[in-house]
């Protein structure tokens, strides 16, 4: 039934290819966005762990010699160039999550739109700006030691310490899950999201202390936060997969048909 709706509108040769593709895989657009997430995070891991050595982070109390050595590593610049090139991919995950959030019952589009914009904002202070800062130090070994040290601090503090955008992202996502009567995402993901939000709060002290568990390389501020984030992202992927999978095809057809006639 559902496939015939697509096939029945295959009138002009120009759109016939698109019709056939969508008849075979009516959720193709959502799946492309979905699979960008594991692809992006694999890249993200390569960039931040292997190339940048930004994760796990070096010490906030590193000597000036160590800072200069860190900033001059050739791979750091390569990593940041790859980040500049690929960070846009993060938008695709927001795109598909918004589509699924808008299926929820009992909420208006307010929360999905807040989710989309909070993340669109977060990408710059929380990721690309620190990337530029590291790249600057890497680009110009001739900067004075003082400037290099400031870039080192600014890079790590912005990367680990951009808290608010992510707090809002988690907050609106959790509220949406709790209000949703249709259970697009399971309630436990909402509770887990609250924990992810708490890790942002646990990172507050990196702005104050340079040693111990609450420093930017600390057991709580960095390691606990990272473990919880990775766990959250993994659960998010599983739940999102199920949400897309379980979406009735008629819902999709309804949207397209309403605009197609």
């Amino acid at each position: 039934m559902s496939e015939s709706v697509w096939a029945g509108r295959a009138g002009t040769p120009r759109s016939a290819g698109a019709e056939a593709r969508l008849a075979r895989n009516p959720k193709l657009d959502q799946w492309i966005c979905y699979w960008s997430i594991p692809f992006f995070y694999t890249l993200f891991g390569l960039i931040f762990v292997l190339f940048g050595r930004i994760m796990p982070p070096p010490s906030p109390t590193a000597s000036i010699e160590d800072v200069l050595e860190y900033m001059q590593a050739p791979k750091l610049g390569v990593g940041m160039a790859l980040l500049s090139l690929t960070l846009g991919l993060a938008s695709l995950s927001s795109g598909v999550i918004v589509v699924q959030m808008k299926r929820m019952e009992g909420i208006s589009p307010v929360l999905p739109y807040a989710y989309l914009t909070a993340l669109a904002v977060a990408g710059v202070p929380g990721c690309l700006f620190p990337g530029f800062v590291f790249a600057l130090g890497n680009f110009r070994p001739e900067y004075s030691a003082q400037i290099q040290q400031m870039l080192y601090d600014l890079g790590f503090l912005s990367f680990v310490g951009s808290l608010g955008c992510f707090v809002i992202q988690y907050l609106v996502f959790a509220i949406a899950i709790f209000l949703d009567r249709r259970m697009i995402f399971p309630k436990w993901l909402g509770y887990l999201t609250i924990w992810a939000l708490v890790t942002e709060l646990v990172a507050i002290p990196i702005w104050i202390t340079r040693t111990g568990p609450f420093a930017w390389d600390g057991l709580l501020s960095f390691y606990l936060g990272t473990v919880l984030f990775v766990g959250w992202e993994f659960c998010m992927c599983v739940c999102l997969y199920r949400a897309i999978k379980n979406q009735p095809v008629e819902e999709l057809i309804g949207r397209a048909a309403a605009h197609g006639e």
């Binding site: 759109s15 698109a18 969508l22 009516p26 959720k27 193709l28 657009d29 959502q30 492309i32 966005c33 960070l87 846009g88 938008s91 695709l92 927001s94 795109g95 598909v96 918004v98 589509v99 989309l116 914009t117 993340l119 669109a120 904002v121 990408g123 710059v124 690309l128 700006f129 999709l252 057809i253 949207r255 397209a256 605009h259 197609g260």
Partner: peptide, 27 residues
Amino acid sequence: MRMGNPSRAFAYSYLAAAVSGGTLFAL
């Protein structure tokens, strides 16, 4: 959003990318 796509996933993604990109020129 007018297109005959099964969902608006690409339109939303486009919007988010446009917002992030605009910030950089301002910076």
